[in-house]
């Protein structure tokens, strides 16, 4: 098992300016360290800082103070490009040159990167149903995403940063994207950070979920740990008072999430309330904490 630290973020602070004197802080003294060979789900509500965090790691956004280390080496503005041989990301389709064909994109990337997995490239091509010699502007957003996926997966990255990598693609494309992703993860122990709102889709994929809330890491757990720590109590009607062990409420489901199931059970029995305990889904945990 590969369990050395791959990525380390120390004391990262990022603020963006809205004007000369107005600054909005997204992260303040944020730290995180991730092990190699694992899949991490980066989860959080809109505006929690998922994209900002990934862009800081990629060097697309500046941070001060703070430090990002990859395999122990500090990334600086001057050397970021060397790390980017091993850290890839799926760009947004809007960033693509409209006049260039998918083929030219792939060919130029193949030359820019030191390694290139031609077998994977062919597999992605064979799964696609469009003409790669056509310019990007004649492809649909979903088809552009497929090109971008090839560009991010084929350079044999050690760290893959995926920010909503599937956008508006159809279920077949999604399915094979995950399968390709899993095959490279299993083969090369690639570390993946995947930020997405489609939590259920990745529930069986990640080793650990990182819950971000307003720029802070509020929870870091694997699915099994989550489901053994927390329990969902469903009611006919939500209790008006805070129940013992209650960690969060799912108002729509008339349920609570408890981090002390025994205490909660006892409290509920003492109050004479009817309830049904359940194993929470990842979406339940997300709603309660993120």
């Amino acid at each position: 098992m590969n369990s050395e630290i791959l990525l380390e973020i120390n004391g990262l602070t990022h603020a963006y300016s809205g004007g000369l004197f107005r600054k909005t802080t997204v992260f303040e003294d944020f730290s995180l360290s991730l092990e190699g060979g694992k899949i991490y789900a980066l989860l959080g509500r809109n505006g929690a800082g998922k994209t900002t965090l990934l862009n800081c790691v990629l060097g697309l956004l500046a941070y001060k103070p703070g430090e990002v280390r990859f395999r122990g080496k500090v990334m600086t503005p001057g050397n970021t490009h060397q790390f980017l041989q091993k850290i890839t990301s799926v760009a947004s389709p809007a960033e693509m040159f409209p006049g260039i064909s998918a083929d030219s994109y792939v060919n130029s990337h193949r030359k820019i990167y030191e390694n290139w997995d031609t077998e994977l490239e062919n597999r992605i091509r064979s799964m696609s149903d469009f003409d790669w010699t056509k310019p990007i502007k004649s492809l649909s957003t979903g088809q552009r995403m497929q090109v971008l996926q090839a560009l991010a997966l084929c350079p044999e990255p050690e760290l893959l940063l995926l920010d909503e990598p599937l956008g508006v693609t159809d279920p077949v494309v999604r399915k094979y994207f995950y399968k390709n992703l899993l095959s490279i993860v299993a083969e090369r122990e690639t570390t993946v950070i995947i930020a997405t709102h489609l939590i259920n889709e990745i529930a069986n994929l990640f080793d650990e979920a990182l819950f971000l809330k307003q720029g802070r890491l509020v929870m870091r757990k694997g699915l099994m740990e989550m489901q053994s720590t927390y329990r969902k109590f469903v009611f006919g009607k939500l209790p008006d008072v805070k129940i013992e062990g209650e960690a969060g409420r799912l108002i729509g489901d008339a349920a609570i999430i408890s981090d002390h199931p025994e205490k909660t059970t006892m409290d509920l029995q003492a109050r004479g309330m009817k309830f049904k305990p359940e194993t929470p889904s990842i979406e339940d945990v997300f709603e309660a904490f993120a």
Binding site: S89, A94, E95, M96, F97
Partner: peptide, 17 residues
């Protein structure tokens, strides 16, 4: 307009290149 600069910033190319 199309964010090409951003696209290039993701590639392992130095700022000078």
């Amino acid at each position: 307009r199309n964010g090409e600069g951003k696209f290039f910033s993701r590639l392992p190319l130095s700022r000078f290149e």
